[in-house]
Deep mutational scan, measured.
Amino acid sequence: NITNLCPFDEVFNATRFASVYAWNRKRISNCVADYSVLYNLAPFFTFKCYGVSPTKLNDLCFTNVYADSFVIRGDEVRQIAPGQTGNIADYNYKLPDDFTGCVIAWNSNKLDSKVSGNYNYLYRLFRKSNLKPFERDISTEIYQAGNKPCNGVAGFNCYFPLRSYSFRPTYGVGHQPYRVVVLSFELLHAPATVCGPKKST
């Protein structure tokens, strides 16, 4: 009989979030998941669920729940959905087409922007091929755009693959930082360890 609440607040209220290319994953298990708490945590810009209804979450049980978190800019949030393409979905964080879970995003301009520009958040701009779903690539190998090998040196047709967002508070919403948490629900042929409040007794 599990009584402890799932530590969603640790994920959502973390002081620092990860850069999207090096997104963070927390496995959540053996706890009571009260998803209604999430609705009250922040004024969400996005709370979209796929393959599951957000209002039914509190009635369900899962084997595992994974919470992935990272920062992107406002106009990239739409890429965090099944079947999307674009720089983020292709080279940084890719959801599977049959994704079961929820994408939660909110504006973090007050936390993640600086007047002089916050350069701490990076994204991958160049990659030889698209990522597979939930693949994480943290390599910093020089990207070869031409025929000549780069031998690890940046220059003509040889690019450092990561680029930094420079978040400034005066930017338009599309270029402001957004914190994203992706909850993916895993149903294996194994005992369910993460249940809503109704199912945990």
Rank of each mutant, 00 (worst) to 15 (best):
P43R: 09
A22R: 09
N13D: 01
C31S: 05
L38I: 14
P197W: 15
A67H: 01
G101R: 00
D90Q: 09
V71E: 05
Y178V: 11
C150G: 05
S129Y: 08
F44Q: 15
P82H: 01
G74F: 01
T3S: 12
R127Q: 04
V180C: 08
G146W: 04
K110R: 11
F160Y: 14
N1L: 06
K94G: 01
R78E: 14
R124T: 03
V11W: 07
R179M: 05
C158P: 03
N147D: 14
A190Y: 11
Y39A: 15
K199R: 14
R168M: 12
E141G: 10
K198Q: 13
I80Y: 01
A33R: 05
V20E: 04
V77N: 03
V181P: 00
A67Y: 03
S139H: 06
R163P: 04
S200M: 14
P54S: 11
V182C: 04
Q144K: 08
R179P: 03
D75I: 06
R124G: 04
G83W: 01
F167L: 04
K128Y: 08
R163M: 10
T140H: 11
T193P: 10
I138R: 08
Q79G: 02
V180K: 00
S116E: 14
Y178T: 08
P43Y: 06
F45N: 15
K148G: 10
S164K: 14
T170A: 12
F126H: 15
C150N: 05
T55V: 11
E10H: 06
R124A: 04
V173W: 11
D34L: 09
P133A: 09
C49L: 00
S129D: 14
L60W: 07
I80M: 03
A18R: 05
A33D: 04
S200Q: 14
Y159E: 13
V181Q: 00
V65N: 02
C102Q: 00
P54K: 15
F47I: 14
K128I: 08
R127D: 05
C6I: 02
A105N: 03
L188Y: 11
N64Q: 12
E186D: 14
S139C: 06
P177A: 08
K94M: 01
C49D: 00
K94Y: 00
F17P: 04
R27W: 06
Y50H: 03
V20W: 04
K26A: 07
D68E: 02
S166C: 09
I2L: 12
R127M: 03
Y35D: 06
S53Y: 07
F70A: 01
L5I: 11
T100N: 08
L122Q: 15
F62P: 08
A14Y: 02
D59A: 09
Y119E: 15
N87F: 11
A14F: 03
R179E: 04
L38P: 03
F185H: 00
A192W: 10
R16E: 15
Q79K: 04
R25F: 00
Y119F: 13
A18W: 03
H189L: 09
V181G: 00
D112I: 01
D97R: 08
N64D: 10
P43M: 06
N64T: 11
K94E: 01
Y159H: 14
T63G: 10
L41A: 11
